[in-house]
Structure formats: C-alpha cells, structure tokens
Design a protein around this nucleic acid. Sequence first.
DNA 1: TTGCTCCTCACGTCACGTGAGGTGGC
DNA 2: TTGCTCCTCACGTCACGTGAGGTGGC
Lengths: 278, 278
Amino acid sequence: MLRISEFSRLTRIPAKTLRYYDDIGLFCPAQVDKFTGYRYYSVNQLARLNRILALKELGLSLEQVKDMLDNNLTPEQIRGMLMLKQAELQQQIQQEQMRLLYVENKLKQIEEEGLMSDYEVVIKSVAPVHAATIRATTPDMAHIGQTLDRAFDTLMTYIGEHGKQSDKPEECGITLYLDPEMPDKDILLEAALGIEGDMKATGDINVYTLPAIEMAASVVHHGPFNTLDKAYHALFKWIEANDYEVCGPNREINLAYERGGDQNKYVTELQFPVKKKL
Amino acid sequence: MLRISEFSRLTRIPAKTLRYYDDIGLFCPAQVDKFTGYRYYSVNQLARLNRILALKELGLSLEQVKDMLDNNLTPEQIRGMLMLKQAELQQQIQQEQMRLLYVENKLKQIEEEGLMSDYEVVIKSVAPVHAATIRATTPDMAHIGQTLDRAFDTLMTYIGEHGKQSDKPEECGITLYLDPEMPDKDILLEAALGIEGDMKATGDINVYTLPAIEMAASVVHHGPFNTLDKAYHALFKWIEANDYEVCGPNREINLAYERGGDQNKYVTELQFPVKKKL
DNA sequence: TTGCTCCTCACGTCACGTGAGGTGGC
DNA sequence: TTGCTCCTCACGTCACGTGAGGTGGC
C-alpha cells in the first residue's frame, strides 16, 4: 500500500487532485485509515486510474468519465459519447482557427494603421423586422440623401394613417441595398420602417417581415453620412481578411438621426449578411 | 437613452451579461437612476461595446480587455499581448487536434476490439532515477528471466554492501532495453535499482542518474510476464496510431514482483520515451 | 522529540446563468 | 390597478489550486 504522496509521485498526479477524485467518488483509495483518515493506494489501482486519465485526455469531463467507467454503458452509448465529443472538438478547432485569424489580422492592422482602429467589426445576429417598405432608385451616391428622405417621408405618412410605427430604435430607419454595386447603373434600394401589428399594403408600399440575419458583420459609424465610406472600407477589409463572404443585401440602420440635426451626433450601423468561406 | 432590455435587444447581449459587465466595471451604463437603480444606455456606447466584443472574440479575458481599453497601453504592450494570445491559440489548436486523433482512434479501437481495451496508454513524465546498474545480454526473450534475476541479484548484493536501496516503488526494479530490436543479435539490456545518496561504482556496476523522460507513453500490465507481449502490442499500436515515435530506450518497471510469488499479482509498467511526429 | 506528512475545511478561479424575492413604471 | 420590467442578492458551474490550522507517524 502506498501513501498519497508515494502514489502521487508514481503516477505524477498531484496529491490534491487525488483527494479531489476521492471526494467526487471517481477514484478512491483502496483503503482509508479509520482513525487518521490517511489514504492508502495500491498499484493494482493503476488500471482504473489510467483508464480515467486516458478518457480525460479525450476531453471528456470527469462526470462523463465516471459514467463510462461505473454505469457500464452499452457500446452504443459509448460510441455515441465519443462521436459527440468528436464533433465538439471539430467545432472547437474551427473556432480557435477563426480566432487565430482574427488575432493575426488585428496584429497586421495595428502595424498598418497604428493602435486601434475607429471601426470594430463584430459578428452578430439580427432579428427579423416586421416592416413597411418602399423601393427607390438613385443614379449615384451624391443624391441618395434626398431619395431616402422622400422614401421615408412617404412611409411615415402611410404608417401614420394605417398603423403604428415600432418604437424599437433598431427599427426606426433601415435602408437595404438590393443590388451588388454596378457602375453606370442606378442604385436600387429599399427604405423600411418597423411597424407594430399588421397593416395592409398599397401601391408602392410593401408590408412584410425583413428576414433575420444569422450572421451579420456589423460596424457602427459615429458622425455625418459623408464619412460613411470609411466604415464601409473597414468592413470590407475585415470581411475579406477574415475569410467571410457577403451573402445578401446589406443594411444601414439609423440609430441616431434627426433630419437637419447635428450630423456629428448621427449613429449608423452597417450590417452585411456574411458566411464563412469554404 | 435605452433601458437595459432595449439595449440588450439592439446589441444581442443578454441583459444579465450587461449587468455583469457593469459590476466588473468593464462597461457601465451612460446613466443610472439614483432612486430605482435602472440602467440607461446610449447608442454612443456602441463604440466601446463593439471594441470589447471584438477583443473578446480574439479569446482575451475580460480582465485583459479592460486593460487594453482603459490603461492606455503602449502599442508595444498591445502587440505583446496579441502575440502571446497567438501563441496560446496555436498551442490550443495543436492540443485539440491531438485529442481529436485520440478520439478517432478510440472509436476505431472499440469497433475492432469491442468496448474498452485492457491496456490504456497514457502520456506521462518520468522523474530521473539515481541508480546502480549493470548490463547484461540475452540471446532471446525465452532466457530473459534468468538473465535479469542474476543481474538484479548482483546489484542487490552490491548495494547491500556499499549503500542503501531506494524504497520508492517505482525504483525497485527497472530494466532498460538499450538496442532497438535486431533479429539474430543478442538483446542488450541494463538492470537498474534506485539508490539513496551516493555510492561508488566498481567493475560491472555503474552508478549514475537515469535521465528523466519528458514524455513517456506508459502502459501497465497486470499478471505474468509471459503475456507482456500483449501490453507491448497495445502500446506500439497506440504510438503508431496517434502520431508519436519512439525516441529512446524503453523501460520495464516492476511495481509488484516477488520472485517465485504468485505471477497473477505481478504489476509491470512499460515506458517508451516518445515525441510527436513532425 | 522534531519535522514531515497527512488531514479537513474554506475560499478563489472565469464569465456568466439561474432562480428568489422584492420594487418601480406605465 | 395589473402585469411587466428592473433591481439586488446568493448560489452554481468545472477541475482543481491555494492557503489556514490542526494532527498522526516515524
């Protein structure tokens, strides 16, 4: 019989850990002195301990290891647990590789642009928006302001007469860009305002639910619209560098906007639906 | 100003998490009602929040994120943190890939041999052993028992006269196999017994410290020596399947052995120094 | 006998999640 | 007014590590 420190030295498992395994009933000493509480281990216990260590190495929790060893599971159950673990590990590896790419790109960015950039891109999901919308075109970005003002005016008037506007800040001014950019072509866009309850559509006005976006690359721009291109640029660069690709029409969300108000107080979120390449 | 639930919906961060970030001083509401304690957030806070989320996505801890945002670190410090994280991630990925391989092989093994095998291989380190040793050769494995008995007898006698034997169970009978297997050649081996303190060498007896093994693939065999080949077989198979390679002389450790005693009570550990391929 | 080893609490870790129980706001 | 939202504890998670304070073994 070996004392805990001897068994610890033999197995290279810290004594504290052996005590812990005893506490949770995973691996108990062959014998415990009734009076002193001293734990005594036998070399025959190495079989079980090695089984535990091997299963732990697979990434299973101690709870799962205990399950596998004590509740003699069917081969099917064991296969099931291992296959689940396999899938988990594959996912984790993917995630870590993504993180690694993030870190590498952040390092590059710091070298190129110095310290932290003004635009931090995050991946988020976007909820569906029940909205009234209207489509419009504009020949170039220089006139987009007027086009949108007119579109939103029409929408507001219509909603005021036929229903109720949503008061959620993220639904109070959404612009969708429907076409991928085409030089020498009009830009097709859709203005949308969230509404509460149902409402009928008429003529130019559509009423439907903008779909949720599972994965949107999002960036927030503070300040006037005429510097929005910087935000777009940062976003494109990030998407490219981190192996995403755009997979749907992008949106602009007016989070703080007042027509004629102080443009420095504007807050606009850009959302691009994306998916991982490959 | 937005209430916590609104800000939570907008950012897709659970309210509980926002409260937690407030608690730890990482991200506090723009305003807190003195009487009700209600938290109020502003869309202008999105800049900081996104910065936090982006850095968190890199795998940094909230503590580190706070550091980077609040203690305006030098670019060099920030680069340092990111490069450290990069190295950590690379290591983690390697580890997970190893685990994945373990799981896959365990699945294969279950298919081939049914449920759990008798031999669980673990990777462990082995401490250096200060020992007296003696070399011997044997023409084939059939005569190894006698060869070793003689070698250990000689050692014991010598140690009894010139020093003191170690009482650590893992040092009471070590056999090293010095040659890679060569058919038609004698097998060269070295018997070693741990000793306490120093001791002079004479003639055939060497006194030195068996080196530590950083990574040893280890398996424990219970029962008579004539079935040890099963343990060897399991070990070789495991090493091969999991992309390790042997990188030094292997050892047999007698953990429970009594000459002429009940062979079913024998416990023997096999240790192969290994390293990862590639 | 003295120092060594072992023992049992109890608390900390990390980023929250999960109630419990209570109060303000509309 | 009623139900909804928000608040603050307090506890749990996972696999231990880190003391504190005390006792048996050689």
